[in-house]
């Protein structure tokens, strides 16, 4: 299958406010040397805690932010260096669904104008616009009589459907879903997830699905990348990652998912605080149960330990996991 998106060694730093006029400017690294790729009609899940750089990565792909270094190839063309017409064309290929359906829809535009906006911007002929509009309403499951209504007249789930329709209007190849279900009611979450799945099959789009809800990510993704402190620490096919999580951070994440069975308590999660005065190369070292001075201070790169299973920590694949073995049950 063709690679539709390739992210190569992308980094992004943000300048922090100076303490005073003379002090040196400090930086916060939001994305640190990340490389990922996405194949046609596949879903790449990105998980990680708040502040791990998931959303910044999405913004870089959408060209809302420019990376400090690295390349982002969409269909083989670098969006970070594209200009003018080429940039406009590349932007059409990636559309976004945001977490908060309240701030993602302009409250002063009605549904018709919201969904038509991308078509108007890209100057698609009027008759064509109307056709696309009605077929989009059908595919996201909105009634035809809602066109003149305003966003505040809809529930969160319906608003998210409007946002999905808008994202689909330009027939993009990649849709970035930045926590598309986290602000929705649990009963609605499944509906939206299934809608996204159905659209993927019908329109052959690829998704980048960003979430901290592991079960949702597992449900929809083909491959999952785990991010911690700006870096990808583990990358594996969804099933493999759940069965055989290697990086201690991935294990921590998986173990923090609540189980419906009250007997199955996650007692084995330990809060660990290692010596943070040393400056380890691994950002997770402070909380790592496998902490080993010699190892954590040396440079670690993402390396393939099994077929298609990449881990950033060499120790984790050698030592037995400390957070209980999920294969036991």
């Amino acid at each position: 299958m063709k690679k539709i998106l390739e992210i190569k060694n992308v980094s992004k730093k943000f300048a922090l406010r100076k303490d005073n006029f003379f002090s040196a400017r400090k930086f916060f690294t939001a994305v640190d040397n990340v490389s990922l790729s996405l194949k046609e009609n596949q879903t790449l899940g990105i998980v990680g805690e708040s502040g791990s750089g998931k959303t910044t990565l999405a913004k870089l792909i959408l060209d809302i932010e420019k990376p400090d270094s690295g390349e982002i190839l969409i269909d083989g063309k670098d969006i970070t260096r594209a200009k003018g017409k080429e940039l406009k064309e590349l932007r059409r290929q990636t559309q976004v669904i945001f977490q908060d359906p309240y701030s993602s829809l302009n409250p002063r535009m009605n549904v018709e104008n919201i969904i038509l906006e991308p078509l108007q911007i890209n100057k698609i002929i009027k008759q064509e616009q109307i056709k696309i509009l009605h077929s989009l309403l059908n595919s996201v499951g909105l009634p035809q009589n809602c066109l003149k209504k305003y966003p505040h007249e809809f529930s969160g789930g319906q608003r998210q459907r409007i946002a999905i329709a808008r994202a689909l209007a330009l027939k993009p190849k990649i849709i970035i879903a930045d926590e598309p279900i986290s602000s929705l009611d649990v009963s609605i979450q499944a509906q939206i997830l299934n809608l996204l799945k159905q659209i993927k099959d019908e329109m052959r789009v690829s998704y980048i699905f960003i979430s901290h809800d592991l079960s949702a990510v597992c449900h929809i993704s083909d491959k999952i990348a785990v991010m911690n402190k700006a870096a990808v620490v583990e990358l594996a096919p969804a099933e493999e990652l759940f069965k055989n999580p290697l990086h201690p951070y991935t294990q921590l994440l998986l173990n923090s998912v609540c189980d419906a069975d009250p007997e199955n308590k996650n007692d084995d999660i330990q809060i660990i605080q290692n010596d943070s005065n040393l400056s380890p190369s691994c950002a997770f070292a402070e909380r790592c149960p496998l902490y080993d001075q010699k190892h954590c201070l040396s440079e670690n790169n993402l390396s393939e330990v099994k077929k298609e299973h990449f881990v950033k920590c060499a120790l984790s694949s050698q030592k037995k996991a400390l957070y209980g073995d999920r294969n036991e049950n």
Binding site: F98, S104, P118, I121, N122, A163
Partner: peptide, 10 residues
């Protein structure tokens, strides 16, 4: 977000 969305539409 709707401003960012509009930008991604070109």
């Amino acid at each position: 977000d709707f401003v960012a969305a509009s930008r991604t539409m070109g």
